[in-house]
Design a protein around this nucleic acid. Sequence first.
RNA 1: GGGCGAGUAGCUCAGUUGGUUAGAGCGCUACGUUCACAUCGUAGAAGUCACAGGUUCGAGUCCUGUCUCGCCCACCA
Length: 897
Amino acid sequence: MKIELDKTYNPREVETKWYEIWERSGYFQPKIDPRKKPYVVVIPPPNVTGILHMGHALNNTIQDILVRWHRMMGEPTLWVPGTDHAGIATQNVVEKRLAKEGKTRHDFSREEFLKQVWKWKEEHGSTIVRQLRRLGSSCDWSRERFTMDEGLSRAVREAFVTLYEKGLIYQGHYIINWCPRCHTALSDEEAPHKEMEGMLYYIQYPVKGRAGEHVTIATTRPETMLGDTAVAVNPKDERYHHLAKEKLILPLVGRELAVIQDEFVDPDFGSGLVKVTPAHDPNDFEMGKRHNLEFINVMHPDGRMNEKGGKYAGMDRFNARKQIVEDLEAEGLLVKKVSHLHAVGHCYRCHTVIEPYFSKQWFVKMRPLADKAASIVREGKVNFVPDRWTKVYLNWMDGIRDWCISRQIWWGHRIPVWYCEGNAPLPPGGRGIKGEGGNCPPIVSRETPAACPSCGSTNLRQDEDVLDTWFSSWLWPFSTLGWPQKTKDLSYFYPTTDLVTASEIIFFWVARMIMAGSEFMKEPPFSTVNIHGTIRTETGAKMSKSLGNIIDPLDVIEHVGADALRFSLMMITGAGQDAFLSSEKFEIGRNFANKIWNACRFAFLNLKKESFESFDLSDAEIAKLGWVDQWIVAALNQSIEEVNRALESYRFNDACSVLYHFFWHDFCDWYIELTKSSVVSRQSSEKVLLHVLEKSLRLLHPLMPFQTEELWQKIKPISKKPLGETIMTAPWPKADPVKGQEAPLRKARLLKEIVSLLRNFRAEHEIDPKKGIHVVIESEMGTVRELGEEIKLLVQADAVLFQSSPKGYLKAGLVSGAIVYINAKQDIDITKRKKTIAGNITKLESYIRTLESKLANADFKTRAPEAVYQAETDKLQDSKKKLTHFQQEQKALAELG
RNA sequence: GGGCGAGUAGCUCAGUUGGUUAGAGCGCUACGUUCACAUCGUAGAAGUCACAGGUUCGAGUCCUGUCUCGCCCACCA
């Protein structure tokens, strides 16, 4: 039986083939075993509108590595997948489609519109999920969830009602972040501030009854002056004490404004006077409440001025601003305008400048939740990796403000509150921005109520608003497992183990999950949060579709395969650091994949035996092996230890480089090359070759799942001892250090040194590669004598001899414990050689000086650890010996001419 | 304004508690293809570890300050 492999690896067919088999065979589903502690990860649910980008690729590769690694370690391993309904984003997508037909959602009833969104979701919502499969993500798709499916909707209601009953959810009129384009309130996190170059306008407000007297007020948003109901001054600001009893006249409007005193005002900013617009600014809102001012809302929800805006009614806020400035200028009331850098909130979905807007919304009282969530992290029950994010998290918890959770959109979980419109009439003007019911108290209920419990009326109206998308996301780690029902999954798999995510959503999601977990489950939802970096372009910019600088992971998969994509990403991403990406970077993974492929190809082509009892090597067997075999087994053991250490501390790039180096340089470049020698290659080494290869594939599997499965399946039949169905559940290799494995490791180091020395000599002196050489080695070390055949093979020597002070040979150099000679005297460029020797001498001399002065330092001897002192002493002796040899050679060369 | 991260070879980055003459990949130079792999091999050149002080027997690593770049947070209009 010969195993045939193509000359190059073709990932495409292999990847789709194996994913189907894995999924079909149920390998992604854990077996619940009450005796074992499960390993659980919940996916950060991508938006249903999403398509896979490099950030997803990075995030899911890390999760898949962890999941596959733990699965191989025999833990019942569950990775829960799913998608997020992404309220605003998804609604925007569907509305954009309607806009192409010249329609808005208001051309439909709410129900009809939602039907369209669901339809869109059914047609397109599985895109990202399909793409995650192509990446190799080993999620348990039988447990896939969607934040708006029935179970999760029940969880949302349960959470809302519970918090309401505890007094942690309330409704009230406040200034919130309003997006005039999306027509909805946003939380503080959804309205990130961006630095913007704006204008600071200085406007004169006339003093009532004192012709010609004005005060100057500075504002960045002149259009809001239409809603001014006072002017404020710091009580300590003596410049304005004379205004205390005066009234001011609001320009363009004519309203009388009182001058109020408030500590909030900074006398040093602008003129020291602040216009107060309680309905359009959060600070003014607070002042308005403190001083009992009138709240005048001058804007429509879409950002146009409303009827309170007088002649500006109907104008967009920015046009109104322009017009107002012009009008003030015409009246001579504009003193000056100065450019002004300030931070302005923007909608995180559509990037429109948000408007601080006065409206009635639902809020979650965060303080009690945040205090608990903060102490969970402080007590180490949840750890951030890297640790620096702990501080960021705690900082946010410290300064937390209440969470505005109502959204004025249609796509989402409708707020489970009903108003009775039955018996009692509406109070005049009782409707705010959102409707309010009659006299009966609102009904906040887990189940849709049939009738008003207060008056029995069936004339009920549900709150129009939906909840913030993140209100369902924060329940994700337990809602996906069945909560609020007490399911088997929930009791076995909760709490989860690792959460893997990007720093951008620590506040949106991570922090809130910790709150929700401790509130509803009495236990934090995971024990470790691994925060990875952001993928950037070569120049450090963020990748974004609008900038046209994205590298599409699916393109990369098409070209080099998912394994190469995964390996490359992991190799270049330092733990938690941002990664700078260019398409050439993926050659790392592609080349490595090809290397692995070809190493196996070599093994299969040269296999003499058709099958082996097993690939296992007992200590007794190892003891009987040749040293080269013993060395590669020892090197493999070391690598396993290092990989384990790296994975345990989430240093995936380290794990990659250890395996890359072991496989490519130790295994292929040295071991396989050595086995090509007829002397080294003996019956036993074939088994070692397969042993190392098979173990390497297992070690590489979490990083490169597809290719390792493909090759492992080919190796599998060679072992009579069954290896299992799939590499996915094959055991994770153990490091089994063998007694005395230091000796072969030392020997390999010595061989490498001698071989490098000779190769270097050959290259330096341009000795024809085909020309045979004779090598003589002078050494008192017995081990050197055992390396003859290996050296002969690796440097293409005709002979390798061992003797002292050979005649007619040239010294090629020194290694620790041996002098190496070569017979190629006739080919040597003496001048060049002299130069090299002189260079070596200079370098050595200066090194010796450094060592001598270090050792001469009395403090060094007394304070440095013994081992360090000894090492330095040895180095000095060694260097002096080398120096002597070089000097002798220099002399010999001089005699030659 | 506060906080965080980065600055090491031409490029992209490792360098875990301070202890060999600071490493890798790419790129570059030279040589090599009947050899598993040219998606390869061998060898080589290339660094004031941003800068200035300090602690220490010893600093790329710790401390202080400075500069440059990036990110996050923040209700001074």
